[in-house]
């Protein structure tokens, strides 16, 4: 019995149970909601969020109030860059991937430098960077058209690749495996947890704390860039601030996955479940026939309710 109780405390288990419940609820509300094709569509949307959340996850794990509010801006920027580099031709896919990764790494590097060298709190630094990115988007948009996706990319995102499952979901699974390997089996991964739980101790033990932190922000920028590229493939062409919603959604996915915002505790498997949970919740709310105001109220209230299951802080003790 106590084993079941402790199992129920695992964020991943909670998320999976909630996902099953929500799928069941969706199926009851609108038959066909949990059908194979529909679930695949949900997973495609979830994988976009999940890829952004992978970067957000490592920054948060790294601690010292680590958070990246600029990911939404990088997603939008990457979608525009990719659209212009590809401009509808398959031959442009590889250059587009390289350009997007470079842009994501660049803005991640700037965030990392601000956080480490100038010791600006991550929230402030990435918030400021978000403003810069949004301004940059306006400049780019005025100068050039938003560009189109290459057919190869949209096929990768929306059409089955192997075993009837679209390429982006395979990509997401691969990222999940790689993240699990990196976090739990490599020195780099252990160092993330080390600086996240006690930065000073990690420094004393010889961990290059600053370099690590810069690397984490660069990883976050690059994951956001990949998500922006895939988002372009999903929607065909990019439009204004297409990535805006990903900033806070990625943080919520991480929290629902059981990673503590204080850093040093959590992992990516839970975050993947958290992303799926969030997407299913949104999807159910769009199938139910209520107007926008009711939808938002229910969404906000449900988020609060779900948070009650996760990482509540400890009560003060004397």
């Amino acid at each position: 019995m106590s084993r079941i109780v402790s199992l129920m405390r695992q964020p991943l288990v909670v998320a999976l149970v909630l996902i099953a419940l929500l799928l069941h609820l969706g199926q009851t509300l609108s038959p066909g909601f949990a059908s194979g094709g529909q679930v695949l569509r949900l997973l495609i949307v979830a994988s976009l969020l999940g890829i952004v959340a992978a970067g957000q996850n490592v920054v948060i794990l790294g601690g010292r109030e680590g958070i990246d509010l600029s990911v939404g801006g990088v997603v939008s920027l990457s979608a525009i860059i990719a659209g212009n580099v590809m401009n509808g031709a398959d031959s442009g896919i590889v250059p587009a991937i390289l350009a997007c990764l470079a842009a994501g790494a660049f803005f991640g590097l700037l965030n990392g430098l601000g956080v480490t060298l100038l010791r600006i709190p991550p929230l402030v630094m990435t918030l400021g960077m978000l403003g810069v990115l949004q301004g940059l988007l306006v400049v780019i948009r005025m100068g050039i058209p938003s560009g189109r996706t290459a057919p190869g990319l949209s096929g990768f995102v929306t059409q089955p690749l192997a075993a009837g499952i679209p390429g982006i979901i395979w990509l997401w699974i691969m990222i999940g495996v790689l993240m699990a390997f990196m976090l739990h089996r490599t020195v780099f991964g252990h160092r993330i947890y080390a600086i996240g739980s006690n930065e000073h101790a990690a420094y004393m033990a010889g961990v290059p704390v600053r370099l690590m932190r810069i690397a984490l922000f660069m990883i976050s920028g690059m994951f956001a860039a990949i998500a922006g590229l895939c988002l372009l493939g999903y929607s065909g062409s990019s439009f204004a601030n297409v990535g805006e919603q990903y900033t806070l959604a990625s943080i919520i996915a991480v929290v629902f996955g059981g990673t503590s915002l204080a850093g040093g505790k959590g992992g990516y498997t839970g975050t993947m479940a958290g992303a799926i949970l969030l997407v299913i919740l949104q999807s159910i709310l769009t199938t139910v026939n209520i107007d926008e105001s009711g939808r938002q109220m229910v969404f906000g209230a449900t988020l609060l309710l779900l948070m009650m299951f996760y990482g509540r802080g400890r009560a003060m003790r004397a």
């Binding site: 938002q296 609060l304 802080g313």
Partner: peptide
């Protein structure tokens, strides 16, 4: 009182308040 993390919890309440505002004036 419920000890939720301020960033995510107030983001959730902000969605709720926005919904309420849209209900009052769509």
């Amino acid at each position: 009182a419920l000890r939720l993390q301020a960033i995510v919890a107030t983001f959730a309440t902000s969605i709720f308040f926005t919904g309420l505002a849209l209900y009052i004036l769509p």
